[in-house]
Design a protein around this nucleic acid. Sequence first.
DNA 1: TATGAATGAGCATTCATTCAT
DNA 2: TATGAATGAATGCTCATTCAT
Lengths: 183, 183, 183, 183
Amino acid sequence: MSAILEAAACLLEETGFHSATTNAIARRAGVSIGSLYQYFTSREDIFRALLAEHQAAAHACVHRVLEPVLAGKRGPAKALPELLQKLVEMHRERPRLMRAMTTELAHLIGDDGRKQEAQEMEELVTQVAARLPGPPGVALAKSWMVAELTSQVSRTLVHEPPEYVDPAEIQAVFTRLVNFLLK
Amino acid sequence: MSAILEAAACLLEETGFHSATTNAIARRAGVSIGSLYQYFTSREDIFRALLAEHQAAAHACVHRVLEPVLAGKRGPAKALPELLQKLVEMHRERPRLMRAMTTELAHLIGDDGRKQEAQEMEELVTQVAARLPGPPGVALAKSWMVAELTSQVSRTLVHEPPEYVDPAEIQAVFTRLVNFLLK
Amino acid sequence: MSAILEAAACLLEETGFHSATTNAIARRAGVSIGSLYQYFTSREDIFRALLAEHQAAAHACVHRVLEPVLAGKRGPAKALPELLQKLVEMHRERPRLMRAMTTELAHLIGDDGRKQEAQEMEELVTQVAARLPGPPGVALAKSWMVAELTSQVSRTLVHEPPEYVDPAEIQAVFTRLVNFLLK
Amino acid sequence: MSAILEAAACLLEETGFHSATTNAIARRAGVSIGSLYQYFTSREDIFRALLAEHQAAAHACVHRVLEPVLAGKRGPAKALPELLQKLVEMHRERPRLMRAMTTELAHLIGDDGRKQEAQEMEELVTQVAARLPGPPGVALAKSWMVAELTSQVSRTLVHEPPEYVDPAEIQAVFTRLVNFLLK
DNA sequence: TATGAATGAGCATTCATTCAT
DNA sequence: TATGAATGAATGCTCATTCAT
């Protein structure tokens, strides 16, 4: 099963979603298509599983960094630059695969998937907001904005790095921004 | 030709990329497939044209708002909240189509397309940065960050609006952020 | 009209029957497809005309050499080596075109075309046989055999020249053969 | 696989290359198009296989008759009339199919195929020539000429039989010719 | 007479999926 | 449980031909 997912991931990286046919995946995984269909109900199912795997990894990454914050043991303004760093590292592990997931597999995320992801984000955003001073509505907006910023910047930094901007300066500006919003 | 593009757009909105077959597009556009292939060299070509049309519209929108800024007649910190507003409006015009473009059509944007888009953004970011006080490297990073934030927030606000956050507060926070960075 | 035929011939030479589409022929000939269909009723019609043109040329070639023979002014055994030579020269003028005609256009020669060609050959074979000594049945068979041999050898000599055989020897053997049969 | 080839052969015989579509072949063979493409990579591939099958049969026929000649157990002048006879019989088995192969399928024989066929012929011609008296160059030319004559006459005798010539006389003339050249 | 945009029947081919072994 | 040959619906695309201008 994980062999199948890995095969799908490799083909995705190497030649794209289009040419990652079920037969190709099975061959690459060293199993028969019959077996492939014993573990996955359809081609989409395979890629959705891949997506879920990635999402889980991302969540683990986020939670690992944010746990001390949620536990009140660390200020969010301190943690977020580190989170950005960790997310960048995560994307950099298999950049082509990561990119393929957000471009070629984006259409597989149904409304359910989107809703679930939104809910998980809501939880985090809300909890961080709760630790912020000021009116709750404002804190929520700030927390949400930081979340958006972090995910967007981490992705862009890996997949469309702006060559004309110094990454260190981006980090610095990000840190100042986070301090401005979350203090 | 525009009838074909419109047909493709409608099908994309209604039933997705997958079912927007060339025959379906032609039928919807009221032309024969033969004619369709007189104007477009392939199915992909149609959708790439659609993408280009959208990109052009987005650029027009951005330039309209930013022109006074680039001309030195208006401060960027003032203009950006308005830009956010305009972008949101643009996305809201045909939200399903807009969404489909970034999910189902994302894989059609080749490296060339990405490069071109990056270049156009670089130009804008650089010009705005030039009007900012402080060291150029920092100004560049700030300008870039605002650009990322604006595009991300405008998209999310339309396609995954966080129900638990007050949009007005988001706008307010965005404005404060922009003031913080671009002043 | 001849411009169209020439265009068809060129495309046949250069890229084969398959890619010699009516539109390509018209473009190459510098006329519109509409005009093309004013002169020819169908694509096949064009190529059949080309074939007929070639056939006419071949017949002219044969008759030019054989006329003195039919007029009793020359012995067939003398004339045939010359005919072989002339046919080879004809094939060599545009070898690729000639070859394409016998491979790619062969299927366009319907039963009618075949019948007509056979008739024209019959006439010639019969007339030559009439000038031959011996029983008529035998003379006919000899004459026919020489005709077959000449057409086959002239074609092969140009299109599949056997590198391991000396062309001069082939000519010599051909001459001896003709002398053996037609004297 | 052979069912597919047989189906292709039948359709070729009955309605020609043009109407022998892949779907028609599959239907006639009693398999799905999917299966057809499991055994052959393309439509052309099917017909090329058919051609190869025929070529193999022809070679078997030739070798069967010529083997004693090559082994020195029989004179070539004796064997060739028999070879002509066998080739005629071969063509007569499925004349329409045979004819279709040389007209409708001729364009599928690429330069490689032609080269290979030429080589196989060279081998035979050379070996027969080696058994002939006289200078090698002349023997080669004689041997080649007989080969050309045999293939041409056998084909024509079946597909364009000259009604005005007595087949028996043709055979007789052929025999005398062969005796003249190969003795 | 010339034009060329429009037509659409028709074809080769793909690939997710099934099911008998 | 594993296999992989067989399936066939579905699709992108071509190109000879027409006809209004």
